[in-house]
C-alpha cells in the first residue's frame, strides 16, 4: 500500500476490548485475532471510516512516543496483516 491509499474495516468483524487488549472476531470465518495497543488504536480510528496510512500515522504520532519512520513501517505492516486476514480492505475511491 502507498501512504495515500485508504483502508477500511471489512464487514462482519466484531471487536471487543478484553483485559486492555483488542480482540477481533471474523463472524464469517469464525476466526479470532488479537491486536496490540497500536493495532487496537488503528482499529478504533477506522471506526469513523476509511483512513489513509498517512492519516493513521498522523493520529498515532500524537499518542505514541515512536519515531515516524518506525510508525509508518508498523502501520504498513499492520494494514497488510489486517488485509491478509480479511479484517480490512483497501477502500474504493
Amino acid at each position: 500500500m502507498t501512504p495515500d491509499q485508504r483502508i477500511e474495516r471489512a464487514d462482519d468483524i466484531v471487536a471487543r476490548e478484553v483485559g486492555g487488549e483488542t480482540v477481533l472476531l471474523d463472524l464469517e470465518a469464525g476466526a479470532y485475532f488479537g491486536l496490540n495497543a497500536v493495532g487496537g488504536r488503528v482499529w478504533e480510528l477506522l471506526e469513523d471510516g476509511p483512513q489513509s496510512l498517512a492519516e493513521l500515522c498522523d493520529a498515532l504520532e500524537q499518542e505514541f512516543a515512536v519515531e515516524r519512520a518506525t510508525l509508518e513501517a508498523d502501520v504498513a505492516a499492520l494494514a497488510a496483516d489486517l488485509q491478509a486476514n480479511g479484517l480490512a480492505r483497501v477502500a474504493a475511491d
Binding site: 462482519d12 466484531v14 471487543r16 478484553v18 483485559g19 487488549e21 480482540v23 472476531l25 463472524l27 464469517e28 469464525g30 479470532y32 488479537g34
Partner: peptide, 30 residues
C-alpha cells in the same frame, strides 16, 4: 492466563448451534 489468552482458549470450548446466525455468534462472543 491473560484475559485475551483466556478468550482465545474458551472459544474452543463453547459451541454454537448456528454459526451462520451472526447476531447470535456476536452475542456469544460478547
Amino acid at each position: 492466563m491473560q484475559p485475551r489468552q483466556a478468550l482465545a482458549e474458551i472459544m474452543q470450548h463453547a459451541f454454537v448451534l448456528d454459526i451462520e446466525d451472526k447476531a447470535r455468534v456476536k452475542a456469544h462472543f460478547e
